[in-house]
Design a protein around this nucleic acid. Structure first.
Lengths: 240, 240
DNA sequence: CAGTGGTCTAGACCACCAG
DNA sequence: TGGTGGTCTAGACCACTGG
């Protein structure tokens, strides 16, 4: 059962997308929305707060809540605050994503992996290297580590499809959040070979640790992105 | 006057920093905090929500609210969701930052700048190029555009110091949020000259648009960062 | 000035996790 | 089963914006 404020947020989001609430106009005030949805004002406000965070609305005390023009971001960039997996992201954009499994094995974790996944050296981890191919062009070279006990039953078939879908739907594990670090780097021979890039092409490296809702890190990964194919975007709003 | 929930959030943050609430232990439950601060539970919850967003606390229904171990992020990375300006960020870390003004002029905006700053072609903008030097090493080459009418009275002296301090303290303008895009790029001759980097060194490029609280974009800038000196970090939490 | 959103209260019920 | 945090209400007062 979804909370009411999420339902309301979904409804409002839909209205913005369908131009029921037009860009640069004010949406109905909170008292009217209270009447329409028959909830208390705190609930309406919380729903609006979500859309403010998403950059769709902007509230100003004294004047009202305005629909923002979001058109010019949302291009080919990846929102750096989503971590639902590449498969879903590309599926939503109707892009064709394939994954080539380069390596899939089990090992004891190195010092760094132990730290990132907060596990001991005796807890085995999957080590996965995948090449993600977008519209038949090499795109991202992805090194992933996951604790075996948290993600049992992984197979090559799953890796070719979507790990995240498997985790969510088969294992019923939810994500609580993620920590990411983004930097530029020179490409090494490995990158050049798989990403099919030139010797002096840089790569965009994204390291991330994803946490599951029970508090344990579920994934540590390092993505080497073709510099000309991928960029990250971040929207930041001073919470209202 | 700060809202109560911010005051409480500050207090709790302080306690975490001072180890009054220790890592991996539970903080007092919300009913106890209600008694201590003599506020309603909604207010306590909102305060906790802020710290959850900051990655300091983790709440779980049924068990309590735990202090997280934040130690291993927060190194030399820059949080990608702060935009208080480099001067403040480095001052907070006790790093010595200097700025060399390479260009400071006024012009009519190009098509791209018009779009980003949401202004017409007749509204003049400042065009600023600064080299930011950290601990006597070139660090970032920064191209900035700002609408003249929003930021009147800019001088070279201000540019050498901190634009953001000037905007906040002298002009009393507050920021509402920012939008950023991060990507890797090859360095051009301009970068190589000023950042003192090699021909095959990549750069990390960050474009950003900062919005003021009245809703207007106040800055459009493009930072070219030395790839070996700077990375961005993002913490993402599914709002609780 | 009227109207807006921001904060806050004092309750209530519910979903979830532990022992 | 007892205790936790998550949601929600029906009010209230305040701060700010705009005419």
């Amino acid at each position: 059962m979804k909370p009411k404020y999420e339902e309301i947020a979904d409804t409002l989001r839909e209205r913005i997308k369908n131009n029921v609430y037009k860009t640069d106009t004010l949406i109905p005030n909170q008292t009217d929305l209270v009447k329409e949805f028959d909830v208390s004002r705190m609930t309406v406000k919380k729903a609006i707060g979500i859309l403010v965070m998403e950059g769709l609305l902007y509230s100003q005390r004294g004047s009202g809540t305005k629909v923002l023009n979001r058109s010019f971001w949302d291009k080919d960039t990846s929102p750096a605050n989503e971590y639902d997996g590449l498969s879903k992201q590309m599926h939503d954009r109707h892009k064709k994503l394939k994954s080539q499994v380069i390596l899939f094995e089990v090992e004891f974790p190195s010092k760094e992996v132990q730290e990132r996944l907060a596990i001991s050296e005796e807890q085995p981890v999957y080590k996965i290297i995948r090449l993600r191919i977008l519209e038949d062009e090499p795109f991202i070279l992805e090194h992933t580590y996951m604790p075996c006990d948290l993600v049992p039953g992984l197979t090559t078939d799953i890796l070719k499809d979507s790990i995240y879908t498997y985790i969510k739907e088969q294992l019923s594990l939810d994500f609580a959040g993620a920590y990411r670090n983004i930097q530029a780097d020179k490409s090494d021979e490995y990158d050049q070979h798989y990403l099919n890039c030139k010797k002096d092409d840089p790569v965009l490296e994204v390291q991330q640790v994803v946490y599951s809702k029970n508090g344990r890190p579920i994934e540590f990964s390092c993505s080497r992105n073709r510099y000309d194919q991928r960029s990250y975007s971040i929207l930041n709003v001073d919470y209202a």
